[in-house]
């Protein structure tokens, strides 16, 4: 599973959740930022190997 696809799906989830519930939306956006940062770290270094 491509990590980029997973994190994009999470962003879509965050946008929809944020429209209906502010707190959960903020939480989902924060998690999606962390996911983007993790995927970025996986791509640029050899120190974070993500296997699913």
């Amino acid at each position: 599973m491509p990590y980029a696809l997973l994190s994009f799906i999470f962003i879509l989830l965050a946008v929809i959740v944020a429209w209906f519930n502010r707190r959960w939306g903020v939480a989902c956006f924060s998690i999606s930022l962390a996911l983007i940062a993790l995927v970025f770290l996986h791509h640029i270094t050899d120190h974070l190997q993500i296997y699913l």
């Binding site: 980029a4 994009f8 962003i11 502010r22 983007i36 995927v39 791509h43």
Partner: peptide
């Protein structure tokens, strides 16, 4: 992959404005 990450980042910028 880096371009895709940048697209995601740009979308995340919209989060605050959406809220």
């Amino acid at each position: 992959p880096l371009c895709i990450l940048q697209r995601q980042g740009i979308l995340a910028i919209a989060s605050g404005f959406l809220l």
